[in-house]
Amino acid sequence: SATPYLTLPAHPGGTHLLVTLVVLSADPDMNDDPHARGSGTRVRVAVAGEVEIRFPDGTRERVP
């Protein structure tokens, strides 16, 4: 399992969008990579705040 954890000494105010991606796989090659860099899954955040997840097979998911 993976649990993202973020701390700040003080909140600077305003709104912040924070995104994390956890890739779960039974692929033994990925088990040796703690950051799952080999998964090919990517996350992008647009200026407007939309989050796009792109999977290795080309599938895209967008979250407004």
Rank of each mutant, 00 (worst) to 15 (best):
D29V: 14
V43A: 10
A48T: 14
A26N: 08
T41Q: 10
R62T: 14
G13T: 01
R42H: 11
D29A: 15
H35R: 12
N31Y: 08
Y5W: 12
V43H: 02
L17G: 08
I53W: 06
A48M: 09
D57Y: 07
A48E: 13
R60D: 02
L17V: 08
P9Q: 03
A2W: 15
A10T: 06
V43W: 06
S1G: 15
R62S: 10
P56N: 01
G14T: 02
P4H: 02
R42N: 12
A36K: 13
V23Y: 04
T59H: 09
G40P: 02
V51W: 03
P9D: 02
V45E: 04
G40Y: 02
S1K: 06
P28H: 00
E50T: 13
V47Y: 12
R54I: 10
G40N: 01
T59G: 07
L8A: 09
L24Q: 08
L8V: 12
V43Q: 05
P12V: 00
T15A: 10
T7W: 07
D33N: 05
S39E: 02
V23K: 04
V22R: 08
S1W: 10
T15Q: 09
A10Q: 04
G14V: 01
R62C: 07
R42D: 03
A2H: 13
P9R: 05
Y5L: 12
G58L: 00
